[in-house]
């Protein structure tokens, strides 16, 4: 299949290094401490953060830092074929773990000892790159909940099809079976916190693809920053003196 046509356009009309449209909205869940909806093109994810709150299971309590938990799920209506997915299948457990580890790396857990932070992410529409979208949504929700963090983690994927590096794969490109690199970075610290790849790539091409994904992460970080700053300003001026 041809993923990049001779004019250099992808299946959905993007250039190889073009990202899908981003949209973020803070405050989607009224009862949560922090919440956000994040969209990358047709991928749409909702995240809710509860906490820091009292640890529910006493035996899990950690005396010098906060316990971070994460639950990832996909809505039944999120994919093309509507199907009931069992909770806690291998895929969702793995993604829950990935999100938990990336978020734990940036939350300053030592500031909230003996408490627990719950992150719930749900995919409302899946069109490739759900993993990255979930991480971005979770970052926004954590920032909204006022949880201290080292940096905003952002994530983006990139692939390599028709010997071209492609940024931000959609579902069709993702299911082509080519290499798919998901990168999560701390943009201000310039550090990588997440790197996943299925399939193989020669090392020199891999570096290019990863570089591309990191660039994508930085673009997302800029957008998230804008949204957060706008939100903070709005809350402050509405509150008044």
């Amino acid at each position: 299949m041809e993923f990049v046509n001779p004019e250099g356009l992808r299946l959905d009309g993007r250039r190889p290094m073009e990202m899908r449209q981003l949209r973020a909205e803070i405050g989607a869940v009224a009862k949560a401490d922090g919440s956000a909806v994040f969209e990358m093109g047709n991928t749409k994810v909702i995240a809710a953060v509860y906490g820091p709150r009292e640890v529910q299971n006493r035996s899990q309590q950690i005396n010098d830092q906060a316990l971070v938990r994460c639950e990832y799920s996909m809505a039944n209506f999120s994919t093309g074929d509507r199907r009931r997915k069992p909770k806690g299948d291998r895929r969702s457990t793995e993604i829950s773990l990935v999100i938990r580890q990336t978020m734990e790396a940036c939350i300053l857990t030592h500031l909230m000892p003996r408490s627990q932070i719950d992150i719930y992410v749900q995919v409302l529409q899946a069109d490739g790159g759900t993993r990255s979208a979930c991480i971005n949504a979770a970052t926004l929700a954590l920032a909204d909940a006022g949880i201290p963090m080292r940096d905003l983690v952002t994530s983006c994927s990139a692939g390599y099809l028709n010997s071209t590096p492609l940024l931000d794969l959609n579902y069709v490109e993702d299911s082509a079976g080519g290499p798919d690199v998901t990168v999560g970075i701390l943009p201000k610290l310039d550090k990588v916190t997440l790197l996943q790849m299925d399939a193989k790539l020669p090392i020199d091409i891999f570096e290019n693809v990863m570089q591309l994904a990191a660039e994508g992460c930085k673009a997302i970080a800029n957008y998230i920053r804008e949204v957060l700053l706008e939100n903070t300003k709005q809350l402050e001026y509405r509150r008044g003196l």
């Binding site: 401490d33 906490g51 300053l108 949880i147 957060l228 903070t232 809350l235």
Partner: peptide, 21 residues
């Protein structure tokens, strides 16, 4: 490390959060 408003009291510099616990 938070989103909020920077407050300065003499030498102290801190960030006052809005939507936090």
């Amino acid at each position: 490390t938070l989103c909020g408003v920077v407050e300065r009291v003499n030498k102290l510099v801190y960030v006052r959060t809005l939507r936090a616990r």
